[in-house]
Amino acid sequence: MIRSGTVDIAFWMFSAGSVVAAWLVFRTDSMVRAAYWLLASFAGVGALMVLLNARFLGLVLVLMMAGEMTIMAVFMVMFMMNPAGLNPMTMVHQHRTAKIAGVFAFAGLALVGLVADFPDRPADARRDPTSDLGRELLGDSMLVFETAGVTLLATMIGAIAIASKRGRYGDAEQGSAPPALEEKPPEPAGMEH
């Protein structure tokens, strides 16, 4: 347990901000705002991690998410064809089920958190957690860390393979079902390029 007035105020501010921002992600009519509310939620959790003394991880989370959420915003604008993104865009299905599932997930997890008796063993505040993490990553857990690295490499290759327009054997669309929305007009003979 960490006790201090300032830390407590900061904790309530960041956790309330983080949860409210998370809720606003699905309550805003603007795609870019949705992405950046999510970033705000992550920044709040990053700040909570810094409060908990996991400073490196909290800052890296913000660093990572700033880029990822910007890309998310660009994707939203790109696919929803709504350049300013200020039109209503509530697009939901199975709303009731989703609400109930969300409430149940929250209630169940919160109940476990409140009822279960977890050991009260706070981290030693004098140790440097960043240095601990570094020694762990390049020591006992090196295999885990390297596996994560190889997974990321495989992900990059796979993502490029899935997303690339032209594969080794021609266009990515070829051999698949015709487009759902528009049919390509047949190309006139002799116009091949």
């Binding site: 950046y36 970033l39 400073r55 490196f56 800052l59 890296v60 913000v62 660093l63 700033a66 880029g67 959420m69 910007t70 440097d128 960043t130």
Partner: peptide, 17 residues
């Protein structure tokens, strides 16, 4: 702070936002 360079990096990543 102990992770100053990371803080700098995080702040500069937010420039994109």
């Amino acid at each position: 702070v102990a992770d100053g360079i990371v803080l700098f990096g995080a702040a500069m990543a937010m420039v994109m936002v």
